Simulated scan of single mutants.
Amino acid sequence: MTEYLSYKEAMQYMGFKTQDTLRTYIKQGLPTVKVGKSKRISKSAIDKFMQDHTVVATQDK
Rank of each mutant, 00 (worst) to 15 (best):
G29M: 04
A45T: 03
T54E: 15
M14R: 04
K27C: 05
Q19H: 10
V35T: 10
R40F: 12
T21F: 00
F16T: 01
S42N: 12
D60S: 08
T18N: 14
S6K: 07
M50E: 05
T32K: 08
F16C: 04
S42P: 00
D52C: 03
A45V: 05
Y13R: 14
P31Q: 05
M50C: 10
R40K: 15
K61H: 06
Q51N: 12
R40Y: 13
K27F: 06
T32M: 07
P31C: 03
V35K: 12
D60L: 10
I41C: 01
K48I: 04
P31E: 06
T2W: 00
T32N: 00
K8F: 04
Q59Y: 07
T32F: 01
Y7C: 03
K48N: 11
V56A: 09
M1T: 10
P31S: 02
A10W: 02
Q12P: 00
P31T: 04
K17F: 09
M14F: 03
S42I: 01
I46V: 13
S44N: 12
T18R: 10
Y4G: 00
R40A: 04
F49Y: 09
P31F: 01
Q28A: 10
K27S: 14
A10I: 01
D52F: 00
D47P: 03
D60N: 05
M11I: 04
K8R: 15
V55W: 08
T2L: 03
M1V: 08
K39S: 14
G36I: 12
S42E: 02
I46R: 04
T58V: 13
M11K: 10
G15L: 07
M11Q: 11
K43Y: 05
G36W: 11
T32H: 01
V33E: 13
G15M: 08
V55G: 00
Y25D: 11
K48C: 01
D52V: 00
A45W: 04
Y7A: 06
G36F: 13
K37S: 14
K39N: 14
L30M: 02
K39H: 12
A45E: 15
Y13V: 09
K17W: 08
K43F: 03
I46A: 03
Q51P: 00
K17V: 10
G36A: 11
A57M: 03
A10H: 02
Y13Q: 11
S38G: 00
Q51A: 15
K48F: 00
I46W: 06
Q19D: 12
K43S: 04
G29W: 04
K17Y: 10
Q59D: 05
